[in-house]
Design a binder for these strands. Structure first.
Lengths: 224, 224
DNA sequence: TTTATCTCTTACTCGATGTCAAGGTTCTGT
DNA sequence: ACAGAACCTTGACATCGAGTAAGAGATAAA
């Protein structure tokens, strides 16, 4: 709080901070991303220690724990949105766009596992301005429905949410060790296509549903 | 802990408790079910006050907060399992059995909304002996795959988990007020059937996808 | 009625969050 | 390079919730 000079000479909401301050802020955010991914109920002191600063320094930049995770969610949303921007969802064929959407999601979950550990969904106000993924996917699905690639009998908005939920479910299976990452990706893609009413590829040779070799690493939950 | 007489003369693990004790235990469980459904981070004192007892009385029956929610999850699992027993999943046609499974789930979520608020998924050991729903549904789906009602190209075990996850997703949409209960049920059923590869009913008259009248009550999240 | 059991009151410890002030350190503008 | 602002650190403090403990009073069961 105590912002000494709120002069109107700063049109940008973010005042230029000192270099070490910015360094610490990103160190704290990084530490929170890692530590909260391992233990969602980690202490402020744990996060501060991992970031190499003191607990009070964390409070110097984030007024509360909720503010910290909110900032973390914000950063995650920005990264996710950027990844989706790079996926060219609106130009690729609908089925490909769906696959790219899911691929971006897997990379995202890999970097922000704490979003799967339920601590992120704190009592957020009923608006979710940080979650731009479902609308984007809804556009893809709607486009596929008009081109005939997807079945139009279910609303695209719901299907988008359902696909994201499906990926969330699959990721949770990876976290508990019941699926490998490769299995989860394959099952999620196949299921999402079917959910959207895409034409099944049928039993053609060269497309077995088993996990492709070389990526059976399970994540598992870290000890304790 | 302080169990005064652990005599071997009690073959049943549960010693016969005094009547008011049992009454209080169920009152506490009921209060926890309601209060934690509204506020997942409610205090022990909140739960105790709602149950009409003192905080220490709660600790007299449940050694810790985790033990209380564990008991609550246990009770929920028992009710859910009983509801699934009454649904005759193994005799009804697969598509009907799937619909019954989902219907039981909706009644369950209505009684135990706290299970949607993520606080229930505390660091549980990696085994989930309390969750008998997916295996049952997997049996139904597998049966449908052998009879030809469902497509066999995805493993039944995964599809069961995916359907449960889909219902979870739909229920979350109801919690945030983005869907009514009726909409959520209709979309979830339709999506689950499609996910399992059931034959689409096609555009026959008399099956509009809109919400049927008389059950548009939204749940919404309670204030604060 | 008697007795074992349960509940309530009061008070305490412990850990985590959040706050505050003083003094030292480091960056930045000149 | 230098002065001052911005930042970090140390230490102490307040608060809240979880969990523990003992004794007096209430209540169901015998």
């Amino acid at each position: 709080m105590a912002d000494p000079h709120d002069t109107a000479s700063a049109p940008t909401a973010l005042r230029r901070r000192r270099a070490d301050a910015r360094r610490n802020i990103s160190a704290i955010l990084d530490a929170a991303r890692v530590v909260l991914g391992e233990r969602p109920d980690a202490t402020m002191e744990d996060i501060a220690a991992t970031a190499g600063v003191t607990r009070q320094t964390v409070y110097a930049h984030f007024p509360s724990r909720d503010a910290l995770v909110a900032a973390l969610v914000e950063a995650a949303a920005a990264e996710y949105a950027a990844a989706l921007d790079d996926a060219e969802l609106d130009t690729a064929p609908p089925a490909d766009a769906l696959a790219r959407f899911l691929a971006a999601g897997w990379r995202f979950f890999d970097r922000y596992p704490f979003l799967l550990n339920s601590a992120a969904h704190t009592p957020r106000p009923q608006d979710d301005p940080h979650d731009s993924a479902p609308p984007r996917l809804a556009r893809v699905i709607h486009r596929g429905q008009t081109t005939g690639d997807f079945a139009p009998s279910l609303p695209a908005g719901w299907l988008a949410i359902a696909v994201v939920g499906l990926q969330h479910t699959a990721a949770a299976q990876v976290m508990t060790g019941r699926l490998t990452v490769g299995e989860a990706e394959a099952l999620c893609l196949e299921s999402s296509l079917r959910l959207c009413g895409g034409r099944e590829p049928g039993p053609e040779p060269g497309r077995e549903p088993g996990p492709e070799p070389g990526r059976e690493h399970r994540r598992g939950l870290p000890g304790r």
